[in-house]
Amino acid sequence: MSRSSSGRRTGGWFGRVLTRRRRHPLAAVTVLLVVLLTCGTAYAAFTPSTQSPLGQATVSQSTQIEEGRQLFAIGCASCHGLNGEGEIRDDGTVLGPSLVGVGAASVDFQVGTGRMPMAAPGAQAPVKPVAYSDEQIAAMAAFVASLAPGPEIPTDDMLDTEAEGVDIARGGLLFRTNCAQCHNTSGQGGALTYGQEAPRLTGVEPKHIYEAMLTGPQAMPVFNDELLDEDDKRDIIAFLTAINEQPDPGGLGIGRVGPVSEGLWAWLVGIGGLIAFAAWVVTRSAAARSAERSSS
């Protein structure tokens, strides 16, 4: 460690330190640590939080089929056809599937979560800000429901997770048997083939979860009320609500996805931090300045 005696008074304090210290034996270590810390913090910042409040579902009472038809003609008909019959391109690819018989639940889910209208046809219909008001969505749902009978929007009591007889644990068992294979046991979502994804289930309204099971949006299979009845679905929703609201007892949740993020943390924070301590342990404490040395 060389002590420079000539004081250069150019540049700011920070610049001087940088200039002087960049040849320091620990400079590389310091840079590495800064990078590691930045990565760790950035990772934590970008790992989506698992808790978000569940809004209250509102069910519109009115069924303004005519208003819905007009909204549909403007917003949906270019892909799904004026009467929801669907559009198939000349080469046989489906531009928009037929909506005859998909029911009000389907519209409420697709439009209510912002998946529809889609910006462009693609493998995945991503969630976007909702484009319509609740009344408009209800109107369009009423219009589509009028084309042919289909799944209805669930009522409030079907979603009441506080009701008597609701069994969170049974909901968990049903969830792990029927849903966790795609959505992950803590509802964090997962990869499907060729760019499709099973979405995260955190922060999703109970109504939309119910509708998704009922209608099987996009690649998701249908779980109708015949084989996964109303009680089963309510239990599943109660389980998801419970674990979404549950704090992480062990500290930071780091995404609740298990080993991959745990491995990253063990390396970046664990080994990174311990090496930083090791680097400090082997340093000698500050040397005496030459003036003091001669005086002693």
């Binding site: 460690m1 000698r284 404490s285 500050a286 040397a287 005496a288 300045r289 003091e292 040395r293 005086s295 002693s296």
Partner: peptide, 10 residues
């Protein structure tokens, strides 16, 4: 010889 530390002399 790295010389004395600050704490050795002060």
């Amino acid at each position: 010889d790295p010389g004395p530390r600050y704490t050795d002399v002060n």
